[in-house]
């Protein structure tokens, strides 16, 4: 068996910015003293004149990004999810969302896979916060391939976009010749008839692993990758729920307000079925290695499998 390639999506972010910098001369990047961690340093090295370090002042950075956007530039404002979506929430809402400016927010170190830094830096609420802003596109790519595609899609789209990236290296799962990224479209990764697993971000891989384990038990799970939380591809979810009658959502995020809530919103309105929301169950994270945390909070393949088995009992 060939070794699985693992890349952190924050690496993909930095690499994509650098690659696309040549194609889009009006692309500029901002950071708040975390360029080495968010990987925007890769862009900075290639295009020093188009990189603006705002210092440790994320709220101001969002406002500066807004001002830059009014001059025709395409700014990517970068920080950890905790500070981009959390600390600067109101700046993102009022200075970027309300005027509907062409600002892209690249938020890295999202979720519990931040690891050892612990709860203060593990943002499990960003998808919920960003979803509430009218007109904001919210994306959460699952691997290197998808992360790079999401950055390009954000540039090609006119308007505010939030993209969530992770710190930990994760398996590349979309490396196939026919892979196509379409903002706002879910991806059917595996067909099944007994239960639908809707996953986002790094949990897509866990969902695929869980589906394999369920197969051994004679349970045929359908797996859908939702890389765009907003606008949500309701059709693919409703269609699948109509077939299976049961839905499980999996996200490295609070079960309040993120993918699970978005899926429930859609199903409540269009095709109510029982839904089990897997994710952070209204708790803060804690220090530990990314893999230990993912295991503890049942976001790895085994944990997702166990929770789905419980749900299907």
């Amino acid at each position: 068996m060939s070794e699985v390639v693992k890349i952190a999506t924050r690496e993909s972010y930095g690499n994509a910015l650098k690659e696309l910098g040549a194609e889009f001369p009006n692309l500029v990047v901002l950071d708040a003293d975390l360029a080495a961690a968010t990987k925007t340093g890769v862009f900075k090295k290639a295009y020093p004149d188009r990189f603006f370090d705002c210092g440790i002042a994320e709220c101001n950075m969002m406002g500066i990004a807004a001002g830059l956007a009014t001059t025709g530039l395409i700014p990517f404002a970068s920080s950890f999810a905790m500070f981009a979506a959390g600390r600067a929430y109101e700046q993102v809402r009022n200075s970027i969302g309300y005027p509907h400016l062409n600002v892209k927010i690249g938020a890295t170190h999202a979720g519990i896979t931040v690891g050892e830094d612990g709860a203060t830096h593990q943002c499990n609420e960003d998808l919920a916060l960003m979803r509430t802003i009218p007109g904001m596109v919210v994306m959460c790519p699952s691997d290197d391939v998808e992360a790079k595609a999401a950055v390009r899609a954000a540039i090609e789209y006119e308007g505010p976009v939030y993209i969530r990236f992770g710190r930990a290296a994760v398996p590349v799962i979309n490396d196939r010749p026919d892979y196509k990224f379409e903002m706002g479209k879910g991806v059917l990764l595996k067909e099944g008839k007994d239960v639908t697993i809707v996953a986002t971000g790094i949990c897509v891989d866990s969902a695929l692993q869980a589906a394999e384990m369920l197969k051994a038990d004679g349970i045929d799970a359908e797996v859908i990758n939702i890389h765009t939380i907003k606008p949500l591809d309701e059709d693919i979810i409703v269609k699948s729920a109509t077939k299976t009658g049961k839905v499980v959502t999996v996200e490295e995020h609070s079960v309040i307000g993120g993918l699970g809530s978005a899926v429930c919103d859609a199903l409540c309105a269009k095709h109510p079925v029982p839904v089990k929301k897997l994710g952070m169950q209204d708790v803060f994270g804690e220090s530990g290695s990314a893999s230990a945390l993912v295991e503890k909070y049942h976001l790895d393949g085994k944990g997702v499998y166990a929770d789905i088995k419980e749900f299907l009992k």
Partner: peptide
């Protein structure tokens, strides 16, 4: 009107961004 504003403290950041955008271009 060049910028939505009113949540205090935010307008000046946008103005700084506009000035930076003008400079670099």
């Amino acid at each position: 009107v060049d910028m939505s504003s009113g949540s205090l403290g935010q307008g000046i950041s946008a103005a700084v961004g506009m000035a930076l955008g003008a400079k670099v271009q």
